[in-house]
Each structure stands twice: as structure tokens, then as C-alpha cells.
Simulated assay, not measured.
Amino acid sequence: MSLSDRPLVHPDRKVSGFRPFKAFHHFSKLVKDKEDTEQVFHIIDALKTRKSVRQMEEFLATDEAKILLERDEELPKLLDDHARWSQCPPNSLARHYIDFMEREQLTAAGLVAESYKFKPKEERLPDLYEWYIERLRDTHDLFHVLTGYGRDPLGEMCLLGFSYEQNHSPGVLFITLMAARQNKKESGLKEPVDAAVREGRRLGREAQKIAHSDLLSMMSEDIGDVRTRLNIGTPVAYRRCFDLYREINPQYGTLEERLALAA
């Protein structure tokens, strides 16, 4: 079925639910293994609301969304084709993305596979809502690159705060707040952690919606120009808190070594 033939929301789809005990159960698994990304999808599903549907409908009414739907691009496949982007300028979004993914040993397809552990492909409903939530999923690592938040626990937590303000998923906010609580308990850095999370949420509110943007058309552009266009600010409080983390855990290395942040 082509995208143009899909309904907005399939009649069999349940688009809201409030199962806090299920969310806590899967968060406890995520605490035990921070790389167990499957648990994130369970938490988001356990606390979903109709707000994401309303946001999708508003987005689909825009010219930008209509162009993306017409292209019907397989975003993970295109993002994982690093050869496609290898000739882009050194400071381009594409080159920063390639460096990030190769350094962290990640693939866009890998995140898709994690989401299929939560719900297999054959069980997914053919509607535009599925296309929309997959786009939110598939742009996650581009969020990392554009915002400057790393994959360290603090960076992931701040990025989730940023993402919540962009996409308003209660499950994402739940993970952000619970992760901050756990992080403060483990590090003893109460106010620096709170400041970094508050900043992440503020930057998310102020920025243009990244997942709604035609990111593939920006891949060859200078990353600084893309950040300016999307109004993505610099995470100063995160960097300060990260330096405090290094004092506690010197093995973290410098922020530049871990994240290769653009100047």
C-alpha cells in the first residue's frame, strides 16, 4: 500500500493509554541495561496520548509534509548509505552524522530492529500515523548530531527532554524525569543535572521541529547553518555538567573526544 492510500489512523489502532505500572516495569529494565533501547518503545507505548495524533495531523497539513509523503523515502536505508554522503564538505551535517554513527558503532537500521523487538513489522498497522512515528524514530540520531548531546547517560537524558518539547510524548517525559532522578542519585550532582535537563527542554521548545524538517535536503549543508536555520541552541549547562562528571569519572574523557562536537 502506498503512502497516499493509507488512512490517517487505522481503525484498529489504539492511540491512547495510561499504564504507569507497565512504564515503571520497563524503566527498571532500562536502568539495568541502558543499551536496551527496546524498553524505551514499551514505555512510550504505555503512556501514549492522542496529542501525538493531533500533532501528526497538523504536520500533514503542511507543504513540507506533503513533499515528504510524495517522496516516500526509506529514511534508514538512505541514512545508512554513508557512501552517498562521503563527498559532502567536512563540516556538513552529513559528515558529522557519518562520524557520529561510525564512532558510536550505530546504524539507522539497528534502531529500526530495536523497535521491531517491541512490535514486529508484520504487526504494524498501515496508516500515516505509523509513518509519522517511524519518522520520529528514524531521526533520533540526527537529533544527537544537531543538538550536540552525546550518548552518555547525561546526554541521552537531556536529549529526551529536548525531544519531549518537540514531540510531546508523555513516555519520553517520564523517562527524562526518572532518568534525572536516577542520575542525581548516582552522581550526587543535583542542581547541575537539573539545570542541564531544564536547558534541554528549553532548547527543544525554542527550536524548529527537527523531525518535521526535510533533513535529507540539508545533509550537504554546513552543520552550523542547519542549526541556525532550525534555531537549535548550544547546550551550555550540559557541557558544564559533563565536566563535573569527568571530575568524578575521569575515564569519561573530554567532551570533544566523546562527542566530536562542532566548534
Results as ranks from 00 to 15, higher is better:
residue 9 V to N: 03
residue 124 R to E: 13
residue 5 D to L: 11
residue 124 R to N: 05
residue 259 L to D: 12
residue 114 E to Y: 00
residue 62 T to H: 05
residue 241 C to Q: 01
residue 83 A to N: 14
residue 253 G to E: 00
residue 87 Q to P: 01
residue 79 L to G: 04
residue 254 T to C: 04
residue 89 P to Q: 04
residue 51 K to I: 11
residue 108 A to Y: 11
residue 44 I to P: 04
residue 87 Q to A: 13
residue 239 R to Y: 08
residue 84 R to M: 10
residue 49 T to Q: 03
residue 216 L to Y: 11
residue 195 A to E: 15
residue 220 S to M: 09
residue 232 I to R: 02
residue 231 N to G: 04
residue 29 K to V: 10
residue 80 D to S: 02
residue 211 A to V: 06
residue 143 F to S: 09
residue 98 I to Y: 04
residue 247 E to H: 07
residue 137 R to A: 09
residue 63 D to K: 15
residue 87 Q to D: 14
residue 161 G to N: 01
residue 74 E to L: 11
residue 230 L to A: 07
residue 208 Q to N: 10
residue 246 R to E: 05
residue 70 E to P: 00
residue 252 Y to H: 07
residue 186 E to M: 12
residue 148 G to N: 02
residue 158 C to E: 04
residue 150 G to P: 11
residue 189 L to M: 15
residue 29 K to I: 12
residue 255 L to N: 01
residue 48 K to E: 14
residue 144 H to G: 05
residue 150 G to T: 08
residue 143 F to I: 12
residue 154 L to A: 06
residue 256 E to G: 10
residue 1 M to I: 07
residue 209 K to C: 13
residue 33 D to T: 05
residue 56 M to Y: 08
residue 221 E to Y: 09
residue 194 D to M: 09
residue 195 A to D: 15
residue 49 T to C: 03
residue 216 L to T: 09
residue 90 P to G: 04
residue 255 L to H: 08
residue 44 I to R: 14
residue 50 R to A: 13
residue 22 K to Q: 14
residue 132 Y to C: 08
residue 22 K to H: 10
residue 184 K to M: 15
residue 119 K to L: 15
residue 185 K to D: 05
residue 211 A to H: 15
residue 146 L to C: 06
residue 157 M to F: 01
residue 218 M to I: 02
residue 260 A to Q: 15
residue 113 A to F: 03
residue 96 H to D: 02
residue 173 L to M: 12
residue 57 E to W: 00
residue 99 D to N: 15
residue 168 H to I: 10
residue 64 E to Q: 14
residue 43 I to M: 09
residue 23 A to V: 03
residue 31 V to Y: 05
residue 65 A to K: 05
residue 122 E to R: 14
residue 165 E to V: 00
residue 230 L to S: 06
residue 47 L to A: 08
residue 88 C to D: 10
residue 16 S to C: 07
residue 37 T to S: 10
residue 226 V to M: 04
residue 94 A to H: 03
residue 51 K to Y: 04
residue 36 D to C: 03
residue 18 F to C: 06
residue 163 S to I: 09
residue 174 F to Y: 13
residue 59 F to N: 05
residue 33 D to H: 01
residue 185 K to W: 11
residue 16 S to P: 02
residue 38 E to C: 03
residue 256 E to A: 14
residue 8 L to S: 11
residue 201 R to K: 14
residue 215 L to E: 06
residue 69 L to D: 05
residue 221 E to H: 14
residue 9 V to P: 02
residue 5 D to T: 09
residue 210 I to E: 03
residue 192 P to L: 02
residue 43 I to N: 06
residue 212 H to F: 15
residue 232 I to F: 04
residue 84 R to L: 14
residue 170 P to S: 08
residue 127 D to R: 00
residue 223 I to S: 12
residue 4 S to Q: 10
residue 169 S to P: 02
residue 105 Q to Y: 12
residue 145 V to C: 08
residue 112 V to G: 02
residue 246 R to H: 08
residue 135 R to M: 01
residue 160 L to V: 01
residue 170 P to A: 07
residue 125 L to P: 06
